[in-house]
């Protein structure tokens, strides 16, 4: 449908080849050389560990539990961020007085690395899911909010004027013109937020948690289980790609007109 998205077969081959070479090099390096498997486990070992974790879990918790713990946190945080940041962002874009109130706060906390205030959140809320969801929420809020403000400001004036000349009321202008016109940018903001929250999630679990895919990696490092760390890292990478791919698919469905007006 979209020119950007449909890759040609040659490019797909190139991508696959790249990964094949990475894996082959990894295989050769770990099987032929004198590389310590403690530092760099071989692909076979990582695969075995993976199968083992799939069957027996890690740290008395099944892999699915780790994954779902992580994703439930992510899901709540991003959902909350979405339903609060979109209205606030749209209002800020629409009413400059509203923006004067909200914007500076967002601009202030946005550049601060989330882990910097994580310590405070833990102090206030404990190390349970509350502090993590709040942390991720804050990480996800800013990108969505900022995308919404920018989206409103970039709505074509002619869209608004033409709708008024067709009889649209203030409310119609907002719900039937401004909102849909902002959708593509809001979606981009959502994808950015998801990526940012995901990165933060792993960091958060590494600092304080007893489950989750990030925790699995950091816990394994304490016992020098580099194979487990590899499994965790690869899972994170792949789930990250799947998540973004899912959002992209949704985006192509919901904002099919993106880049075509």
């Amino acid at each position: 449908m979209n020119v950007k998205q449909s890759k040609n077969p040659f490019e797909v081959t190139l991508t696959l080849m790249t990964w094949l070479i990475v894996i082959v090099l990894w295989f050769i390096f770990t099987n032929v050389g004198e590389m310590s498997s403690l530092l760099l486990p071989s692909p076979q070992v990582v695969w075995q560990t993976f199968m083992n974790i799939v069957q027996n879990g890690y740290g008395n918790v099944s892999l699915w539990q780790h994954l779902s713990d992580s994703f439930v946190r992510l899901f709540w945080a991003v959902s909350l961020a979405f339903i609060t940041a979109v209205p606030l962002g749209l209002m800020s874009g629409y009413f400059s007085k509203f923006k004067a109130i909200v914007d500076s706060i967002v601009q202030f906390y946005r550049p601060i690395p989330p882990l910097a205030y994580y310590a405070l959140l833990i102090l206030w809320m404990g190390i349970d899911d509350g502090s993590k969801v709040t942390l991720l929420y804050l990480a996800a809020f800013a990108p969505i909010y900022i995308a919404c403000v920018a989206a409103v400001n970039s709505v074509s004036q002619d869209y608004i004027l033409s709708s008024k000349s067709l009889g649209a009321s203030q409310k119609d202008v907002f719900t039937k013109v401004v909102l849909p016109a902002c959708m593509p940018d809001i979606f981009t903001g959502l994808r950015t937020a998801m990526g940012f929250a995901y990165t933060t999630l792993v960091a958060a679990e590494m600092t304080a948690a007893t489950s989750g895919i990030g925790w699995m990696v950091i816990d394994a490092s304490r016992y020098l289980r580099s194979d487990v760390m590899f499994v965790g890292i690869i899972i994170m990478g792949i789930t990250g790609i799947i998540m973004d791919g899912g959002l992209l698919l949704l985006e192509n469905k919901l904002v099919f007109w993106k880049g075509k007006d």
């Binding site: 074509s156 002619d158 869209y159 004027l161 033409s162 000349s165 067709l166 013109v177 849909p180 016109a181 959708m183 904002v255 007109w257 075509k260 007006d261």
Partner: peptide, 14 residues
């Protein structure tokens, strides 16, 4: 009551 046609059509792509 006064409809406007712009130089470039401002149709809504959605």
């Amino acid at each position: 009551h006064r409809g406007v046609v712009f130089q470039s059509p401002t149709l809504y792509p959605w």
